[in-house]
Design a protein around this nucleic acid. Structure first.
Lengths: 349, 349
DNA sequence: CTGAAAGCGCTAACAA
DNA sequence: TTGTTAGCGCTTTCAG
């Protein structure tokens, strides 16, 4: 007895050990483990206590060999150091835990080959599902085989011609609202910066930008669409370049909040005050946008909402692989803050 | 034949299927799978080809039941939406992949109970190791049982009285250098903000702050140590409060870069220029610090370095659980940038 | 170099 | 309500 307690176990404690020590069969011990109502209370208590004293740890790998359920999912994102994906990851991880799942993480750095390698790996690890923001330029064939093997849900971006669940923000309407708001505030020269290289999200946001111009009967000045990467420093540089022009814009629609932060820092460096001298609007409404200075107007398709909707859909698909693929578009809402609320006074034009 | 190709397999393809189709034994197929040199080239090629055509996926769970090696590790961090941990997570994930491992992720939100639950879960999933930044106020007992079961490496923070590997920045010396630099630039009233509630890292950084004061023969003004949480908005608020004082500091040592960004935004909102009207120094040298405006002076114990050192140590410990526990302190280096390089002119004092 | 047999720890019938 | 039995897919001796 005291030997057992003192000696560190060479071999891991198994359910069989527990069953023997508690004087029940392995099957009973297994039932206790899984909270089955088929076990007598008295027996359950005894078994539970035995597990405690032996320091038993449930072996999910052994279980999954039988059940074919691992309660793990693969989580694939392009860049966790982008705050948007960081918040998304936190939300997804929380939701998964609440459903009893755990995430195997991959950061692809937007590389389709890294992504392919990871997907292969998690498949080998036997995940029950895959939650993925596909790397830009992911060919549909890359994901095709996987999607018929396990549950797959895309979010944020979708691969063209891939009939697989997708959960995302209403990029078209969100950007439309934002740009229409700028028109309403009196702006006519509205730049669009960030988002390159192209993704489905960029294409949709540019579409919203175009629609708002059409609604305002204002032709688009193509020179005001300056692209640039999705990063704070890219936003900074894009605005620096815009300010050097002979005829700069009066408002800037940014691909997302991170780009917008860079834009605002650039304005400040040039002695301009965002929201007073130039309107700035972001997208995603990440946590930082409300506490930035000045607070940033942004389109809310919050990472929290998208994350939990994506997990919810994944759970449905795990339960029924035959479900028809859905495109779940979360409504977007414009959150107006100081960076754009002021009315623009046209002096010249 | 054509049936096999067309029908989606009800049951997954196993090594046995491959062996049968290729006309070899399961053992041989297994050896091929693991790149054993014991297999004839001709045979290997045939088996590999069979795997291809059958669409075989290696089942690591089955393998691990025999080998007791899962090639997974648990990665526990307090807050991925903090850019420091985001960068750390990216680095760790990359390094792990290079060693053939994959990470099970947990974001604890600094809750010891969430952390305990997660550690329990990954143990059940059979991870080979645990890489953890312990939640603040984690009791040593919480981790004790785990550390004698599997490889555990703490990083960034260490739990007091827990004799387990630790990898972190040289917080004492790093902060010492930073504050000494401020003294050298002529500052005498140097605030310290952020870092609450206390962690091992905060205690060490405050120690460096105190040592630098001692070296400069300057008594510490306790009212200049204002605490505050570790967030951008906490940094903002702390500085706003400092500026309202009758006798504000001339320089601010921040717990980390995120706090420093908040501090700089607050200065700008008050019409002050960081680096000219007030020196600001951060810690961690995250990627954003170099591209902020103005660029932020920071102490480099970069997340990339810490991440890869921690993974390296974890691999060593997985190979030998009996290794004596080590405290691996990475040298810290002060990176001087615009936010603090200017010499302070004392008018009064 | 290849094949046969045993077993990792668990669950799922089925029988008692 | 509890016990018995037969695998899940792989690796690993040990012979051939």
């Amino acid at each position: 007895m005291s030997d057992q307690a003192a000696t560190p176990p060479k071999r891991a404690i198994t359910l069989t050990d527990v069953a023997n020590a508690a004087g029940v069969s392995r099957a009973t011990a297994s039932l206790v483990m899984r909270n089955s109502p088929l076990v007598a209370d008295e027996t359950r208590a005894r078994v539970l206590e035995t597990m405690q004293t032996l320091g038993y740890v449930y072996n999910r790998n052994a279980a999954r060999m039988r059940t074919q359920q691992s309660y793990t999912i693969g989580l694939v994102v392009p860049d966790i150091s982008n705050p948007f994906y960081a918040e998304l990851t936190v939300a997804v991880e929380r939701e998964l835990n609440e459903s009893g799942y755990i995430a195997l993480l991959a950061n692809t750095s937007d590389s389709p080959s890294r992504q392919a390698r990871f997907v292969e790996t998690v498949l080998e690890h036997g995940v029950d599902g895959l939650l993925i923001t596909p790397a830009r330029a992911t060919p549909a064939e890359n994901l095709l085989a996987t999607t018929k093997r396990i549950a797959v849900v895309q979010f944020i971006r979708s691969v063209p011609d891939l009939a697989v669940d997708y959960v995302g923000s209403d990029n078209v309407n969100g950007t439309f609202q934002a740009v229409a708001h700028l028109f309403e505030r009196g702006h006519r020269r509205i730049a669009f910066i960030g988002g390159m290289p192209p993704s489905s999200a960029l294409r949709e946001r540019l579409e919203g930008y175009a629609l708002a111009h059409a609604a305002a009967h204002t032709p688009i000045d193509e020179t005001l669409i300056v692209g640039g990467a999705v990063s704070r420093s890219a936003g900074y540089n894009a605005v620096t370049a815009l300010l050097e022009r002979a005829h700069p814009p009066t408002a800037i629609m940014c691909y997302n909040d991170v780009v917008a932060f860079g834009a605002m820092l650039s304005l400040q460096a040039a002695g301009l005050m965002p929201g007073r001298d130039m309107a700035v609007v972001g997208y995603d409404n990440i946590a930082d946008s409300a506490s930035w200075h000045p607070p940033l107007t942004s389109v809310s398709g919050d990472p929290q909402h998208i994350g939990s909707a994506a997990v919810e859909r994944l759970m449905q698909r795990i339960n029924d692989l035959a479900l028809p693929p859905a495109r779940i578009i979360l409504p977007s809402e414009l959150i107006i803050r100081q960076s754009s609320e002021r009315y623009f006074q046209r002096a010249e034009q």
